[in-house]
């Protein structure tokens, strides 16, 4: 087991060591190790069922771990879950707002759960509703909001108690492209304001656009972890897709010139594009993220 000095602990916001989770005979997580630094925007990328949501549920105390250690902000999730929960804000994949209550009431209940005083609650709710550009909708019942607006309310709710870490589980799933980009801008703003962000996604472009570092997860284990740029550099810069019958073959090149020269030497059709994280995931796991 690795041990950290006091100085090291202060530079690590999330520390996961040999994390295991099983449901009966099914092994959902199979020895995950990772560390996230304060202020970092870290993305967990993987296909459905890879273990992304299970990891985030364990980190936020919603699910119990079977083995290993999780430390957030210096507190252990198993021995001091209440301290960990104080540090964390969570935006789950599904909408979990009280649809029968108003936007303000949803935020107010959350503030009470986190023991914010009445004055602080009122002030923070007003500030956050301005932040998510919903100040004029505070009295509206949640059931009257669109999916994108509900998602923004959930982000505001997760930020109400000023968490050190914001966990976002597939924050833009099911949203259209325009709303997705607004949510991305909001997430970037949250990070700029000093919050560590840990998000799971199976959208390649989301991880590429948002993340400082990305971890690929598949079958409950991390397959690779680095910055999006370095992960993609391993393959090259340019990708040539060639369709052979029912199959597609992709070749990678460091310069566009090399790629063009290769395609000119063949008499079949090619599609030239930039390498993306999907290529890296495919080369490591042999399967696509989606």
């Amino acid at each position: 087991m690795r041990e950290y000095t006091i100085t090291q602990i202060q530079t690590i916001m999330i520390s996961i060591e040999d994390l295991h989770k099983s449901y009966g005979k099914t092994q959902a997580l199979n020895g995950i190790h990772l560390q996230v630094e304060p202020g970092e925007l870290f993305a967990f990328l993987g296909p459905n069922g890879a273990g992304k949501t299970t990891t985030i549920r364990i980190l936020t105390g919603l699910t119990r771990l079977t083995g290993g250690k999780v430390n957030i902000g210096g507190s252990d999730i198993t021995t001091d879950p209440i301290a960990v929960k104080r540090l964390c804000g969570i935006v789950p994949q599904h909408i979990n707002l009280d649809s029968e209550l108003s936007v303000y009431e949803n935020l107010d209940i959350h503030g009470r759960l986190f023991a914010l005083s009445s004055d602080v609650r009122k002030q923070k709710i007003r500030e956050l509703l301005e932040y998510i550009e919903l100040a004029d909708r505070e009295k509206d019942l949640v059931k009257k909001l669109s999916g994108g607006l509900k998602r923004r309310v959930m982000i505001a709710r997760a930020l109400l108690h000023e968490p050190k870490v914001l966990f976002l589980d597939e924050p833009t799933v099911g949203l259209d492209a325009a709303i997705r980009r607004r949510i991305w801008a909001l997430i970037k703003r949250v990070q700029r304001d000093g919050t560590t962000v840990f998000l799971t996604t199976h959208y390649i472009e989301e991880a590429e656009f948002l993340a400082d570092r990305v971890a690929f997860i598949d079958l409950g284990a991390i397959k690779a972890i680095d910055t999006p740029g370095k992960l993609m550099e391993q393959l090259g810069v340019w990708a040539l897709d060639q369709i052979n019958g029912d199959d597609m073959e992709t070749r990678y090149f460091t310069t566009r010139k090399e790629a063009a020269a290769y395609s000119a030497s063949k008499d079949t059709g090619f599609t030239l594009r930039r390498v993306n994280l999907e290529d890296v995931f495919l080369s490591i796991t042999g399967k696509k993220v989606l």
């Binding site: 209440i82 104080r86 969570i90 599904h94 979990n96 009280d98 649809s99 959350h110 759960l113």
Partner: peptide, 12 residues
């Protein structure tokens, strides 16, 4: 509604 998760994620 998955509201139970909101309670479970809170420090209570």
């Amino acid at each position: 509604w998955n509201i139970f998760e909101e309670f479970q994620a809170a420090p209570i």
